[in-house]
């Protein structure tokens, strides 16, 4: 039951995006996120959507797999939409108590929805195509300049990879301990909260004991192999900047340039949309009144 949780959410496939250097993907994703937030008009979103769909198609990840985790952000999406529609400012359509529906609010709600959606898909594209280890390696390499400020970048990256590696092991361990205690008659399905919390003790104590034991063993094993931190350490898998990364950088730069251009050139587009929405609604209202 517990073993079904995938680590990160890496999806094994062979594609350009998968083979790309992790650093390119990390920086590219960050730039993409920024691009979603600096401009506020339809044309830019259309560009972002085209970019996203292209990358998705290149990554060979089935769309079904991409949207599987969507449920987790559903609440956030609904909340944002609700907040924007009912608590926006601008030309008021309907008003009751503290809530007011405005034209700007409706347009904003739509923008936010699209924004969050693309943000989610964009960032999961990165985690789906990059293994957690590649990610930590990429982050380590990107944050290397921080060493000047005496921040132990390598050690932090090592901690992160170890933590990631331990997740499935501890999951398995939990499963085993739970079964053992259930077999000894532990009641894990009680409805009473107090009993439920109490029933966690026989699971948590052995779990912590075993986690510390494993951590101790690992430290010893690392020490026995002369691990001494990051200085002078070479890698088994060198990260290489390949032709595809250069191409990717051109694409990203092109995309970013296009977004900036559209953002400035079509600046008034949102106001235009609001005005259109207003006239449209007024027409409908007039029409309904006319019938009445």
């Amino acid at each position: 039951m517990l073993k079904d949780i995938t680590l990160g959410q890496y999806y094994r496939a062979d594609s350009v995006i998968h083979r790309m250097d992790a650093r390119t993907k990390i920086v590219g994703t960050v730039l993409y996120m920024v691009s979603l937030f600096i401009f506020n008009n339809c044309i830019c979103y259309a560009l972002a959507a085209i970019f996203l769909i292209t990358v998705m198609a290149l990554s060979k990840i089935p769309p079904k797999f991409m949207f599987r985790g969507m449920k987790s952000i559903l609440f956030l999406l609904l909340f944002t939409v609700f907040y924007n529609i009912f608590l926006g400012t601008g030309t008021v359509i309907v008003k009751f108590w503290v809530f007011q529906v405005t034209y700007e609010g409706i347009v904003n709600a739509f923008y936010m929805l699209v924004r969050l959606f693309m943000l989610y898909v964009g960032s999961s594209l990165m985690t789906l195509t990059t293994t957690p280890n590649q990610l930590t390696d990429g982050l380590e390499s990107l944050f290397k300049p921080l060493k000047i400020f005496r921040i132990p970048v390598h050690e932090m990256a090592m901690m992160m990879s170890i933590a990631l590696r331990f997740i499935p092991i501890l999951m398995e361990e939990t499963d085993r301990i739970m079964k053992a205690q259930i077999a000894r008659g532990a009641d894990l399905e009680s409805r009473q909260i107090s009993k439920r919390i109490k029933s966690l003790i026989p699971i948590l104590v052995p779990l912590f004991v075993s986690a510390f034991r494993r951590a101790g063993d690992l430290a010893l094993a690392m020490e026995a192999r002369c691990y001494h931190g990051g200085d002078g350490r070479t890698r088994m898998k060198e990260m290489k900047f390949a032709g595809r990364d250069v191409a990717a950088w051109f694409v990203i730069a092109g995309y970013f340039g296009a977004v900036i251009f559209c953002g400035i050139y079509f600046k008034g587009f949102t106001d235009y949309l609001v005005a259109e929405l207003q006239t449209g609604l007024e027409l409908i209202v007039a029409f309904v009144k006319g019938i009445g």
Binding site: E173, R176, I177, A180, Q181, R184, P202, V205, P206, V209
Partner: peptide, 8 residues
């Protein structure tokens, strides 16, 4: 297996 890891 390894039941000693269930002691608490």
């Amino acid at each position: 297996q390894y039941p000693e890891y269930q002691l608490f």
